[in-house]
Every structure is written in structure tokens, then in C-alpha cells.
Amino acid sequence: MADKTPVIELRNVDKSFGPIDVLHEISLKVNEGEVLCLLGDNGAGKSTLIKTLAGVHQPTRGEILLDGQPVRFSRPKQAQEMGIATVHQFGGTFPLMSIGRSFFAGVEPTRGWGPFKVYDRKTANRIAVEAVQNFGITRIDDGDRLVGGLSGGERQSLAIARAVHFGARVLILDEPTAALGVKQAAHVLRIVNEAKRRGLAVIFITHQVMHAMAVGDHFAVLIRGAIAADFRKGEKTREEIADLMAGGESMADLESSIEGYMESHDGHVPPPVH
């Protein structure tokens, strides 16, 4: 795996807003067919990192590489066009629109000619239902149903299926299982595994260790805007990960060691623990 070119890679990415440094020397790699779980407490810089990946923010220093090529996104749209899709909690779908309409919002299939384009409801519904069912959510079988009537997990799955259908190669999932019941979360995790099987690079942000353990190949813990720990599946026990995520003893240790290191090293952060 090590010699493969990662789909997306960050090299020493810093992000500052004016005088405030939010991200410090972030280096990450995600290969195709791999799930990177990004763990971290609130305020650790997860959202800033996601937004930097999605083209909302530009890195202050460092570079982002897509298939080994350095890229710079000036707008979110540009990142999307290059195959980086972000799915937010409940985002990307419209509760009072039908599944077909919601799926194709912005890129509606049409029939007819010239200026008299007609929205092609049947085609839209068929493709949308197929795309979701291919991900294993067979409960969705009628494209005319309203999105708001779906369960949280189904909505999340619909949003992921939509991103994949429109050519996403890197999938950023922002807490997709938060606020979901056990069954619903299982739905979403199945979808994440399916996306992985299809060779997507997935960045999965979560608070729940069980969910991270279920799909993750690779884990990165973000503390105070720096990567404090970076390890692969099986390298740490569930307890260790839980402790890292929940801000337990080892997290406190890491936190103080980062601070001490930064003070004595001119603001640089220590290399992540493996």
C-alpha cells in the first residue's frame, strides 16, 4: 500500500486566520479504497481541516495533492469538480422535495428540445432509486417520496449515493452517524463500507469509537490543530482510541507534550505518535 500514490494527500498544511493559527503542519494521506477516521474534540480544528479540503478555505502554507499533483482550490465548486465531495449531517438533501428531484437538484435530466426543456421525472426517479439501492438501501423504492419522510440514516445514505453518482473520488463525511440510532448508524456504516469497496477515498469524521473501528483503516487524532496521533487499524486497542477521543489521560499527556514541544521548538509541532 505504501508505494501507491494516495488519492489525496496533505503536506505540512498550515491554516491561519489573521494572527490565529488553527492548523499546524497537517500531513495526511488517503489511498483509494481506504477510510481515514479523523478524530478529535470540539474545537480541535476538524471543521477547518474539512473546509480546507473542500476548497472553502485555502491553506496558508503547505500543499494539497490530488493523485500526486499539487492542487489549489479557490472555490468549493472547483474542489467538487475535481471529485472532492463533502456530505454534512443532513446536508445536501431537501426535506420537502421528492427523492428524484432532490437527487438531481442542479443537474436535472430533461426531455424535449430547445428552450422547451421538460424536467424528466421518470428518468430522475429511476436513476436516483437505482443509485441508492445499489448502495444496499432497498427500502427506498419510490422516487416520488419526500426526502423529509426518510429516516436520518436513509437521508444520509441518499446524500452519499448522490455524491458518488456524480463522480466523487474523495468523500468527506462530517459526523454522518451523529444523532442517529443504532440501526440507522449501521445503515450509514454499510454505505461507507460500500464506498470503500468501490475504491473511494473516504475521510470519516466521528465522535463514536465503535463507528470509527467498524470502518476505519487508518486513524488520525487532531488536538489543538495538530495531528497528535496517526496510526493504522490494529495498532491501538479500542480502549486506547476511546481514551484519545474522549480526552482521557493519554490525550491530556499528548496535549501538554504538544504545548511543551511548541514552546521549545519555535512553534513547530512534534511528529505524530505512531
Binding site: 463533502t86 446536508g91 438533501t93 420537502l96 428531484r101 436535472e108 424536467y119
Partner: peptide, 24 residues
């Protein structure tokens, strides 16, 4: 109700940010 443009209007009222993200 017939032209694809109408879908954009519904999407805009449904969720402005998602509509923008969808490229509308």
C-alpha cells in the same frame, strides 16, 4: 413544475446552502 428551473426554486427554499453546494 415542468421546466428544470422550477426545481432550483424549490431547492433554494428548501435549503439555501445545499442548493449552492449542488451547483445551482
Amino acid at each position: 413544475h415542468v421546466a428544470p428551473w422550477g426545481n432550483w426554486v424549490f431547492a433554494l427554499g428548501g435549503d439555501r446552502d445545499s442548493a449552492r453546494n449542488a451547483g445551482i
